[in-house]
Design a protein around this nucleic acid. Structure first.
Length: 864
RNA sequence: GGGAGCUUAGCUCAGCUGGUUCAGAGCAUCUGCCUUACAAGCAGAGGGUCAUCGGUUCGAACCCGGUAGCUCCCACCA
């Protein structure tokens, strides 16, 4: 059968993915084997696959596939997240396009639209993950708003409320005027921006021309001012005690208060106080019993309470009020400054601090075990530099604002009495199901309008996907929990990872996972974060179409050390594709061989070598996996295949045996190829499966996806070191052949390094000009301190170079080295502090150097 | 404002307890080859004051300071 020179991934990838699912390789049920469990960080249901997902899910798939090949019962649970703000915003926008306003709909009507939308578009990312080759258990796919999962959320809310960890209160929250909801502290991104500092003077009440000047970046909030605050020690303002200032525009008299909170050095040392729109001002307001005037509507326009500019946007008002203040003679000056503003993570709107009634979870009640168990290593963060960050956050954690003024999500199970006939009626009733009537007065109840923060459902993910709440202690949860690895982005270490750990300890008393692998952020070639808005992210599906899923996976993995950001370049995918093709062609070569029944002879040397090499490299790859250095593991496998197997081993067999290798050699070679395929399978699942089935006839379940992962055998390090020289030699000969147009027969019969003639040949630099003095027909050289003698290919000439210079330099170097060893050995401090074996080591080095010096001197004498 | 980390070849990164396993890998570049597995290939070559200044040491990419640049996290000074 003719096999194509170029490997075409498309057909094979689709075929094998279906095959794996058909044969049930992805599905897991509890059994007697050791489990390997992983839950996928659920992508937003609205999402489409981007490079971050590719990175994240490729890493997960590599870990999962390797575990599966190691014989573990592997369960990778996929799913999607309802992402309340993002999804609701999308649905609202879609409805708007259809001319429907959210406010014209009832909650039920809106939710129906949202669910329709979810059914239609929600599965996209799931299908895309399949293209990438993710071996998830698709029979277990979950959505954070599935009935079971929502029920778990409600149950947890009620439970925490009963424990007294959840409370409702008026607090200053981060208000997103675009999303029209409160967001948590973690969802606010601070950015430095250029802004203007306005110096505004307020007249002192009852005086003709006495003023107090304040500095503010937000002059529009003047309308909500209820005090002026100065430092009690500030002499400039000492005389104003007990007086009042007149707020410009609104002409309201407000008290001048004294508080140490004010920095005397900043601005004018006087501060306007707007308790409704600044956290600090709010605190001052509470302390000094100030009036609170909320001048904004939820959407960021001015409310009636502002009296002026009603209905206009806050930023427009800021401009206008500057002009108006100037006209009125209140504006002293403006200054350009840089300050930091909070932006909403989801909508990018400038966050407005706003007082509102929200639900909170007291974090200090639940966070301790989550901190302790990361610090004591029960849960390992990879890389561990994140431990510090994690600790800092956990030690300073604020209460979590868990209510959102949205409809898409789990509605808060709190019920309020409509009648309010008795004082007790004011307390909300929190319960899993809606009570019929108010137990105090018998009135009807209404449910809290708000939904819970999305993270309030995803923090239960590792438990709820195994029905750990619905059916505590069920077969799945007891078998699969705790899970093993969690692969996610560092950005959500607090949003999600920390909270999952909290929930894990709170509800199961156990960590949800043992290792957290934090991936980097995918950046483009010039270091910018890849994002849709910048348009600098390639569409992963295009990459897969162009380079195959295997090539794309290799491409992203090659540049992804744990925790470091990675600069992605499409070139890497090309490298991946080329590698796949190389592998394919190595198979083509072997496939074209016809073994004969003769004894292997010399070829045994090569098979023996490769066996050793394989063991050495498998051991190395094991180590890389153990420390989660996936790109290193891949690189080792890449070099083993490309350089050692294709570039050297196959080349040698081909040269010595032609198309008819001895059967033993042939069988061994197939075996090596299979080992390589297995090692590569987690990285390149498709091509390896494809070749696996072409090497021989196989039964339907004999697939590489479940083939036993190779184990490292014993190997002879010395033999391998010698062969590295053989490789250099082979390359040398090839180079000679090409450059001199001669064709020496490649015969590597002298595989043992020559022990004689230590320095007679001098120093030869293999990669450059050949220096040497060897006799006709032989060549010796020094590499890594050892001398080797090989037969010289016919027709090759030795270039007699500056041998003497080299030797002189070597001599000087060795003498200098000897001196340093001597000094070290005579150094009291060193000797007293050093371990005995280090001293012995130094002594050996000294002896070596002395021997070399003697040899070089002798050599130089013979040359003179 | 506070904290963490980084800076090694054109690019992306290895480099453990300071030394003779220390200056490495892959990619890219250049040169020569379409040699029957593979041009998505083969052979060869060039390329680094290990950011910078100082210190410790017999010896520093590595340890300790200073400086510069970059990144990230946290934070309620208008």
């Amino acid at each position: 059968m003719e096999i194509s020179k170029i490997y075409d991934p498309t057909a094979a990838e689709e075929r094998w993915y279906k095959y794996w699912i058909d044969k049930g390789f992805f599905h897991s049920e509890p059994d007697g084997r050791e489990a390997y469990t992983m839950v996928m960080p659920p992508p937003n249901v609205t999402g489409v696959l981007h490079m971050g997902h590719v990175l994240n899910n490729t890493i997960q798939d590599v870990l999962v596939r390797r575990a599966r090949m190691q014989g573990k019962n592997t369960c990778w649970v996929p799913g999607t997240d309802h992402a309340s703000i993002a999804t609701e915003a999308k649905v609202v926008a879609l409805l708007r396009e259809q001319g429907i306003s959210k406010h014209d709909l009832t909650r039920e009507e809106f939710l129906k639209h949202a669910w329709d939308w979810k059914e239609k578009y929600g599965g996209i990312i799931i299908e895309q993950l399949k293209t990438l080759g993710c071996s998830c258990d698709w029979e277990r796919v979950r959505f954070t708003m599935d009935d079971d999962l929502s029920a778990a959320v409600i149950e947890v809310f009620v439970d925490l409320y009963k424990k007294g960890y959840i409370y409702r209160g008026v607090r200053m929250v981060n208000w997103d005027p675009k999303g029209l909801t409160a967001v948590s502290d973690e969802e606010v991104i601070h950015k430095e921006v250029d802004s203007k500092l306005f110096y505004v003077r307020y007249k002192i009440e009852g005086t003709a021309d006495e003023w107090i000047t304040i500095a503010t970046t937000r002059p529009e909030t003047i309308l909500g001012d209820t005090a002026i605050c100065v430092h009690p020690d500030d002499k400039r303002y000492a005389s104003l005690k007990g007086k009042k200032a007149i707020v410009p525009i609104v002409n309201r008299a407000v008290p001048i208060i004294y508080d140490e909170y004010v920095t005397m050095e900043f601005g004018t040392g006087a501060l306007k106080v707007t308790p409704a729109h600044d956290v600090n001002d709010y605190n001052l307001g509470v302390k000094h019993n100030l009036e609170v005037i909320d001048i904004f509507e939820p959407n960021g326009t001015l409310s009636k309470a502002a009296q002026f500019y009603v209905g206009q946007d806050r930023f427009k008002v800021r401009e206008q009020i500057g002009i108006d203040l100037e006209k009125a003679g209140n504006l002293v000056k403006t200054e350009n400054i840089k300050n930091k503003l909070g932006y909403s993570e989801r909508t990018n709107a400038v966050i407005e601090p706003k007082l509102s009634l929200q639900w909170f979870l007291k974090m200090d009640k639940v966070s301790k075990p989550a901190l302790d168990n990361v610090l004591n290593g029960t849960i390992k963060l990879i890389p561990d530099k994140y431990i510090n960050t994690y600790r800092h956050w956990m030690e300073n954690v604020h209460d979590w604002c868990i209510s959102r003024q949205l409809w898409w999500g789990q509605q808060i199970p709190a019920y309020y009495c409509k009648g309010q006939k008795k004082p007790e009626c004011q307390q909300p009733v929190v319960s899993i199901t809606k009570p019929e009537k108010c137990s105090h007065c018998g009135s009807d109840l209404r449910q809290d309008e708000d939904v819970l923060d999305t993270w309030f459902s995803s923090w239960l993910w590792p438990i709820s996907v195994f029905d750990g709440f619905k059916e505590p202690g069920n077969k799945d949860i007891s078998y699969y929990y705790p899970t093993h690895d969690l692969v996610t982005a560092p950005e959500i270490l607090f949003f999600w990872v920390a909270r999952m750990i909290i929930a894990g300890y709170e509800y199961l008393g156990k960590e949800p996972f043992s290792h957290v692998y934090l991936t980097g952020t995918v950046r483009d070639k010039i270091g910018r974060k890849m994002s849709k808005s910048l348009g600098n992210s390639p569409d992963p599906l295009d990459l897969i179409a162009k380079y195959g899923a295997d090539g794309t996976r290799v491409g992203i993995l090659l540049c992804s050390p744990a925790g470091n950001d990675l600069t992605f370049d499409e070139l890497l995918c090309e490298q991946g594709r080329n590698f796949a093709n190389k592998l394919w062609n190595s198979f083509r070569l072997i496939q074209g061989w016809e073994p004969v029944d003769i004894e292997p002879g010399n070829a045994t040397v090569y098979t023996n070598w490769f066996e050793n090499k394989l063991s050495e490299q498998i051991e190395l790859i094991e180590k890389d996996f153990a420390s989660y250095r996936l790109s290193e593991a891949l690189m080792s496998a890449y070099k083993l295949t490309y350089d050692d197997f294709c570039g050297f081993y196959l080349e040698l067999i081909k040269t010595t045996c032609g198309k008819n290798p001895p059967r033993k050699v042939f069988d061994a070679t197939i075996g090596y190829l299979e080992s390589l395929l297995k090692i590569l399978h987690p990285f390149m699942p498709f091509i390896t499966e494809e070749i696996w089935h072409q090497t021989k006839e196989r039964s339907d379940k004999d697939c590489i996806i479940v083939a036993p992962y190779p184990k490292a055998g014993k190997y002879d390090a010395k033999l391998l070191a010698n062969f590295e020289l053989q490789k250099e030699y082979l390359k040398l000969i090839r180079g000679m052949r090409q450059q001199n147009n001669i064709s020496p027969k490649i015969e590597l019969t002298q595989l043992e390094p020559s022990s004689s003639d230590t320095l007679t040949a001098g120093v030869m630099k293999l990669s450059g000009t050949v220096y040497g003095k060897g006799s006709e027909g032989s060549l010796s050289f020094v590499l890594k301190d050892k001398k080797y003698l090989f037969s010289l290919p016919e027709g090759m000439e030795i270039d007699k170079g500056q041998e003497k210079d080299k030797l002189v330099k070597e001599l000087e170097y060795q003498k200098g080295f000897l001196k340093s060893v001597d000094i070290k050995l005579s150094n009291q401090k060193f000797v007293t502090n050093a371990k005995p074996e280090i001293i012995q080591n130094e002594k050996n080095k000294k002896a070596d150097a002395e021997a070399k010096i003697a040899a070089i001197e002798k050599q130089l004498q013979t040359m003179n």
